[in-house]
Each structure stands twice: as structure tokens, then as C-alpha cells.
Design a binder for these strands. Structure first.
Lengths: 275, 275
DNA sequence: CCATTTGTTCCAAATATTGAAACTTAGTTT
DNA sequence: AAACTAAGTTTCAATATTTGGAACAAATGG
């Protein structure tokens, strides 16, 4: 859609290079120099050199035949380290396995990254697990169970920022398509201790989600159990809530025991160093 | 310029930033500033600013409590795009599924990245698939089936470089622990069209692997079927070779049809721009 | 074949990076 | 408790790097 990519930039050359990476990744397909140049804030020569450097470094991959760029394999290597060390996934794994076994439904583990939902692990009851295709995927926060569960437990500042950065695209006629509607739901979530997604993102898909919190109520992530309206109704799904909540609590305790690093509550970038 | 350590560097600021990312990732655990400084070629203030910028960008994650850095979640997001767009995984998926079903054994899909084996997908017959824990993982090339299968089909230059960059650590007493032994095996592999790993990396683990090639014999990756000596012998495993080869061929054809980007045969970086 | 688009290289000017050293915390020892 | 030590952070002038307009080359197409 319209919204031009957030030129978060800053951080000198590194920030700019990251922007280029994001831009290439955002295309979702092999992209040519000219296409990038159109959307880019950088002049021709500058963008060109960035692409060259990133390609040399393996952060981008270049197809000389078609003259196109795609995100590079070095990212996969680095992400493996990130996933292992910085995500909740390794800690949560056994709990997800158990929850998946018990419910037989799809289970998601998510964290919040730049006001978006970042899925870091998944259990799919029926089919074999789809690898990366789900872990690493991002989704909207305002219309998913895990997204709302996480936002509800952000502190004031982070919440304001997160809420203001949602797109509020109306995916279905049940989507909460305004900041006020979202805020109202977040209040409710805080009251109940869990979030629901009532076909707000995809028709026929419903879910319940609970936040993962430290003892100091710092939000680390969320887990959810998803079902389809064809096979079950909300009553059935909500029956799992106590179980989901308990698992979320357990993960929170484990995470804290492992002295889990501060989650990037950090929505957007605050740095003073202006140009 | 001899076998310096990793400092491939070059590419100005971007290359340096990538080096820092690698360094943090290499620790495999939350790492403090001073620890990085010890191993770093950069002066204190420089390294400090790199870490700050990378953290601001979400490429690193910082735990203020423990004052430690880990690879950041932004990498996971980017890697998802890389995996989807630049790896063989999406193309190979149905073939891996089939091969896994037929053999009932562990199946790997790998690509070559900086002279190392990068596993991009995996099927594990018995247990549920372990996600990222395998995709994104790197391993040695000189003592794994997929590694040798891939190296055997590199062109002269790339092969020389790859062969010279192996560590030749003797994991088991069957490990090919020298360049000459490796080269001899690669010749054999080229002759037979497939590679074997006869407990060269892990005792009790054997495998057969075939390269994935384009019609122009450009090497894109490799697949393997792995077994354990406890459950089977080499005779049984080699019976799968024709099947593995056929699947590799199919993937190669598909990949070419999709006009798959040039694989980073590119071992190491050649840029003249010294520091 | 010329026109046009797309990709690559040059180079002086502008700017960001550099790193020694000073400074600030936090933790430890005397 | 004061002094010491170590770890992390900031400063600032020198310097190397990035910058980007414009020229150049290589493909594409009419």
C-alpha cells in the first residue's frame, strides 16, 4: 500500500545500509537496480555502492543474469544465531510442544518488533511444520491475537507509539480499524488477561492469546492457539485459555530465570544524534 | 596476504559493521563490550559506536541489565525474506517432503556459503522438525556429505579457495584431515556423481549426498539422506542414491525454470580497496 | 542505426568516521 | 570511608570516507 517505507535512517552509514536491506526485502521478489532507485532516497551512485558492498558481504545476493538483487544467505546464518540467542523460542520450545500436543491446534509464539508481530516459532497440528516460512514472518499487531496481547502490556510510551504505527487496514469486516477501537480492546485484554482474534485478520480464523510477562510485568512476547470457525466455535477455543495462560506464565518464569535479554519494547528509534 | 583470521573486511563501513555482527554471532551467547573489544581490530570508541548503531537498528539486541549484546530480531525478519527468495528451500520443499516420506530418514538441503555448509532445510523422519535450530545452521564442508558434494562441483577457482579454507579438524578417526585427502575424495565424487560421509563428522552417522546442478553444471546446492550405523549399513543407504540423485536433478530443473539467482560460489571477497 | 534506457565509473567537495584521551560510573580493595 | 581499578561513555580535531552530479559504457528497442 501507499505508505512510503519509514525512513527511520539515522545511525550514519549503518542505518542507511539497513534501510537498503529492508527495501530489498520488502519487494518480496528479485528486484532491479532501477526499481530500487525509484523508491530510494539515495542518489544513483550512492545506492549503487551500497548494493555492491552489501552484495560483497553476502547480505544481498545478486543474479548477474537477470541483474536482480535479493536478500542474501548471510542473513540466514546470522538469523540462526539471533533466533537461538535472542528469541524466546529455545526457552519456549518444550512448552509449545506440550501445548500443541494437548490442544491439537495451531500454536504460535510471537515477539514484538518495530510495532509488528514477529512470529518466532509455530506448531501446526495437522501438517508437518513449515520451517522459516513461518518463523521470521511478520504480521500486523492490531488485528492478531498475539499482537494485541503484546501491545496491551506495553508501558505507556511504547504503547502509544505502537498504537500510532498500525496501519488499520480493514482485512475483514470484523477488523478493529481505528485506534480508538483498538485501545478499547486493549483495555479489555488487560482486564481479562488474554486477547482474542475474532476473524479480524482472516475470515474463519479465530484465536486466543496470552502475553508472556516477567515477574515485573515486562512484556516479552505472546503465545496463541488458533482454530477455524468451521471446526469449532469460540466457546471451545476459550476453554483453552487457562491452559494457554499457564503456559505463558511458565515461559515467562523460565525466560526470567535464564535472565532473558530486554525485549526490544523499543518501537522505532530514539537517538539524539541528528544530522 | 596469507591466511589471516576472519577479517575479510573491505567494503568500508558496511563491511566493518558486518564483521561486528559476525563477531557477536560467533560468541554464541550474550557478550559484553570488553569481550568484543579484546578480539576486535577496532579501537574502543569505534567498536562502541558500531555496537550502538547496530543496536539502534535492531541488528543487535542489548540487555542493559547484564550489559550484553546478542544478534537482534531484525535479522530474523530479514532472514525470512532471504530464505523465501534466495534459497533453494521453497523450490525444493515438495521434493524434500517426498524424499523424506519415501526414505523415512533424515533429509538435508544445503547451500555453500563462505566455504561452509549452510543448511537451509531439513526433514526429520522420527521427531517433529526442529525449526531454525537446523535451518540457518552452518557446518564444515570437508567432512559432510552435502559439503563435499557441493565442493566437488565448484569451478577451479572457487574449488581451490574452498579447499584452502577448510579447517581440517579431525572430528573422528575417519575424517579426511588434509587437503590432499579431500581432493582425492572430490575426484571420486565427481566420478560417481554422489558423495558419502562415512562417519567423518560424527561417529555412527553416515550419509549419501548429491549435488544440485543447473543444466550448465553450475552448482546450486546439495541434498542428502542420513542414517545411523546402528540402524543400517552403507549398502542399505547407498540403495537410495539413485533416488536422491533424481530428486537433486528435479530440484535443479525447477530452480533453473524459476531462473534461480546465482549462488554465492563466491568464496571470500576480493576487493582491492584496503584499509 | 540511432534513440533510449539502464547500469557503472570519476573525482572534487562535503561529511562522517576515527581514535587518543579525558571522563563517568560501578565495583573492589586497602 | 577513601582510594583504587575496571568497564563503559563522551569529546574533538585530524583524516579518511562517503557523496552525488555528471560523464561514460552497455544493453535494449524502435
Amino acid at each position: 500500500m501507499g505508505g512510503d517505507n519509514a525512513p527511520v535512517a539515522g545511525d550514519g552509514t549503518i542505518g542507511k545500509a539497513c534501510d537498503v536491506l529492508d527495501q530489498v526485502a520488502a519487494f518480496g521478489r528479485p528486484v532491479r537496480f532501477a526499481e530500487l532507485l525509484d523508491e530510494s532516497a539515495f542518489p544513483k551512485a550512492t545506492l549503487y555502492r551500497f548494493l555492491q558492498s552489501l552484495t560483497n558481504q553476502g547480505m544481498l545476493s545478486y543474479d548477474p543474469e537477470r541483474q536482480t538483487y535479493t536478500p542474501g544467505m548471510r542473513l540466514v546464518r546470522l538469523a540462526h544465531a539471533a533466533w537461538t540467542q535472542s528469541s524466546l523460542a529455545p526457552i519456549a520450545r518444550p512448552f509449545l510442544d506440550a501445548l500443541s500436543r494437548e490442544t491439537g491446534e495451531t500454536v504460535h509464539l510471537a515477539q514484538l518488533d518495530s510495532s509488528q508481530v514477529l512470529y518466532v516459532d509455530k506448531r501446526n497440528a495437522t501438517q508437518p511444520v513449515e520451517m522459516y516460512s513461518q518463523a521470521g514472518k511478520v504480521g500486523p499487531a492490531y488485528c492478531t491475537g498475539v499482537g494485541k496481547a503484546m501491545m496491551a502490556y506495553l508501558d505507556q510510551d511504547a504503547l502509544d507509539k505502537a498504537v500510532s504505527q498500525q496501519s488499520y487496514h480493514r482485512f475483514t469486516d470484523k477488523t478493529l480499524a481505528s485506534e480508538s477501537a483498538l485501545r478499547a480492546d486493549l483495555d479489555l485484554i488487560r482486564q481479562r488477561g488474554f486477547a482474542v482474534d475474532d476473524e479480524e485478520h482472516e475470515p474463519g480464523i479465530i484465536c486466543v492469546a496470552c502475553p508472556i510477562l516477567t515477574s515485573g510485568n515486562r512484556m516479552l512476547g505472546a503465545i496463541s492457539v488458533t482454530g477455524s470457525t468451521e471446526r469449532m466455535d469460540f466457546k471451545q477455543l476459550e476453554a483453552w485459555v487457562p491452559r494457554v495462560r499457564r503456559v505463558a506464565e511458565q515461559i515467562g518464569v523460565e525466560a526470567q530465570a535464564w535472565r532473558f535479554p530486554e525485549t526490544r519494547t523499543n518501537v522505532g528509534n530514539d537517538r539524539m544524534q541528528a544530522t
